[in-house]
Design a protein around this nucleic acid. Structure first.
Lengths: 158, 158
DNA sequence: TATGAAAAGATAATCCC
DNA sequence: GGGATTATCTTTTCATA
């Protein structure tokens, strides 16, 4: 159902993940195409699911002090139900921005946006430790952000 | 220079970080405003820096197998120059999608998008360990993604 | 089948109230 | 902030190679 992407598709995708507010004619010019084929390619890339969404990136520093904290969770054995309820809980907590299952010792890695240390301490006890299956938590607090992007490395890019 | 945001601004921002492809009239309707004041607010939010960018979110699974790996780096003492050169190197490596300085033992946390384990092994030896100041690396590989968003929790949202 | 040109429709941007 | 107007861009259609 999804054919391979050519160099132009990759260039278009990379432009869009840098700046999706550009018009299709601007992008067309950048990648060396005229407006309408460029527009059609973008439509196709959306239909085929290469482009999942188009979102505004906000400046979190404008919304007060906050810090990312990585929390590694040690999980007990979970039934399928409990596991699903765990995942639903993760999705429902907006301060948890990312969650991954892990190889190795700790089972789950969370990235949490914490307004403060006090908030986070409360959060670990009142929320995280009460999630189904969570047995232990090891947290790593970040001090400052050097780089943060969602841009995927594509073959076309630098 | 930047005044406080009211409830409508927050609602607009949250809509935009969910879906920035909606027209200003659609957003206006959602937040209970007419098109032109809503558009003016969006412009102001961009000018004042609340909105940093508008980007396309790509589906990384469509681009072949890949995995996120968290790498914690132990750093030696760095001169200001070396530190800047380190940061520049981080920025220039597209597979490093996030980088944070840390409290505690390990100094730096990287999130790396690795095409494969073999690639990552090579990457740690040929790139990471050669960056200025890097003395040791502890890596945590992820198995699967449960949640991944850039949506900031705003007071208006659920 | 892919492209380019051009028309129709929708949206963004600017007016005045 | 709202309503109406204009400019711009998106989307469709059609002709071409």
């Amino acid at each position: 159902m999804a054919e391979a992407l050519d160099r132009l598709d990759l260039k278009i995708l990379d432009r869009l993940q840098i700046d999706a507010s550009e018009s299709s004619s601007e992008i067309a010019e950048r990648v060396g195409l005229s407006q309408s084929p460029c527009w059609r390619r973008i439509q196709r890339l959306k239909e085929e699911g290469y482009i999942k969404a188009q979102v505004a990136v906000l400046d979190r520093e404008k919304f007060g002090e906050s810090m990312y904290i990585f929390a590694q969770l040690k999980m007990g054995r979970l039934s399928d139900e409990a596991r699903e309820s765990f995942i639903r809980a993760i999705e429902d907590i907006p301060e948890i921005t990312e969650a991954y299952t892990l190889f190795g010792e700790m089972d789950v890695m969370l990235k949490v946006l914490a307004p403060s240390m006090a908030w986070y301490q409360n959060f670990t006890f009142r929320r995280l430790l009460r999630l189904p299956g969570v047995e232990d938590i090891r947290s790593t607090a970040t001090l400052s952000e050097m780089k943060c992007t969602h841009r995927l490395p594509l073959p076309s890019a630098p």
